[in-house]
Design a protein around this nucleic acid. Structure first.
Length: 375
DNA sequence: ATGTTC
């Protein structure tokens, strides 16, 4: 029916006190008009993206839209136990030791990938964090809100945890580039061979990104001591089947965490707490998805303009919570400063008030590793 | 976001 677009479910999950840019909501509505889209959800971290917004999930019937997941296919947030005791952490000593997470891993990447059941792709990038908002962050437990839920998620108060945000590096980028070269910005009929080919490569990039996060965590603790145990790994850029919406339905997540994979971490900026939450409630009404972080408040160039006149890079290498920041990149340290992000407490509270999550614990950043730069 | 780069 030509009037179908009027009946599509477009929903923004954000309270009145959570400011969301109008242009992001316009992008959400416009994306909802694509053929076959049946549901468009904006989360409390919704902000404008290149064409389609970030912090959103889109359900389609029998159509795939690769550009809605974007180029960093498989990007996500993983939490690990570190094996490091939480008592009296010597941050300055670890800051001195931590290096090399931006240069290729010294191990055998081909063997590592093959033993994970993956093809030997993007081997030089495996184990590297990448740029932009990606990071590896050592954290301690700040407050346990739900002792039973937190324990079930594997949290132990006497042990530090490591949060890794990274993706599929050049691998996912090549997949989207190939799709755009062949099909421009159009979608794919889900029963086409082109869609099957995309999904196969997409799934490989998702698995590669997961392995990448795990290796980043292992490289990190190889310098501090400790041992990595995976607690959770939640992908926020992906296209997957959505059986809860219908047998031929798909959910596209762009900066939206999966709400059907158990507990997850919704990180604040490096100067704020991260939240370990458990999905609950009427998740189908939210496309079984959730916010993936605080969301940008200022565009990157605005953040640089506003903060350069107020802070030196040295001043930004320590946060108000006492955390240390390893970021030897004089643009990135401003672009990713805590001031450039929205209040994560507000974002999580919006999800709580919508009945979609319960908070298990808050996590406090200790050391945020971005890059040592090119030296 | 990017084995990207003025």
């Amino acid at each position: 029916m030509s009037t179908e677009s009027n009946t599509k479910a477009v929903r923004v999950i954000a309270s009145a006190s959570n400011w969301v840019e109008t242009s992001a909501i316009d992008q959400l509505k416009k994306t909802a008009t694509l053929p076959g889209i049946t549901q468009a959800i904006g989360f409390p971290d919704l902000h404008p993206g290149p064409g389609c917004p970030v912090g959103a999930a889109f359900v389609s019937d029998a159509m795939l839209y690769p550009h809605l997941a974007g180029n960093d296919i498989g990007c996500g947030m993983a939490l690990y136990r570190s094996g490091l005791p939480a008592r009296r952490p010597n941050l300055d000593r670890w800051v001195k030791k931590l290096k090399g997470l931006e240069v290729p891993w010294e191990g055998d990447a081909v063997e590592r990938l093959e033993s994970a059941g993956l093809s030997p792709a993007a081997t030089s990038a495996l184990g590297t964090i990448g740029g932009g908002n990606h990071f590896a962050e050592l954290q301690c437990i700040d407050t346990i809100i739900d002792p039973v839920g937190a324990a079930a998620a594997g949290l132990t108060e006497d042990e530090l945890v490591l949060l890794v945000h990274s993706g599929s590096r050049g691998l996912g980028e090549a997949i989207l580039r190939d799709h755009v070269a062949a099909h421009k910005g159009t979608g794919l009929s889900a029963d086409s061979t082109a869609a099957a080919d995309y999904v196969r490569r997409h799934d490989h990039a998702v698995a590669w990104a997961r392995e990448n996060r795990r290796l980043i965590a292992e490289r990190f603790v190889s310098m501090t001591g400790g041992e990595v145990t995976t607690l959770l790994d939640n992908c926020h850029n992906s296209i997957t089947l959505a059986p809860w919406a219908g047998p031929t339905n798909w959910v596209h997540r762009k900066g939206a965490a999966a709400g059907d994979m158990g507990p997850l971490v919704i990180p604040g900026s490096r100067g704020a707490m991260s939240y370990l939450v458990a999905p609950q409630g009427d998740l189908a009404s939210a496309a079984y998805s959730l916010a993936h972080g605080a969301g940008r408040k200022w565009a990157r160039s605005d953040a640089k303009d506003r903060l350069r006149v107020r802070f030196s890079p040295e001043a930004l290498s320590r946060t108000d919570l006492g955390g240390r920041v390893i970021c030897h990149d004089n643009d990135l340290i401003y672009e990713e400063a805590p001031q450039a992000y929205k209040d994560i407490g507000r974002v999580v509270q919006d999800l709580v008030e919508a009945g979609l999550v319960s908070v298990l614990a808050t996590l406090r950043p200790l050391i945020t590793y971005k890059t040592r730069g090119r030296e």
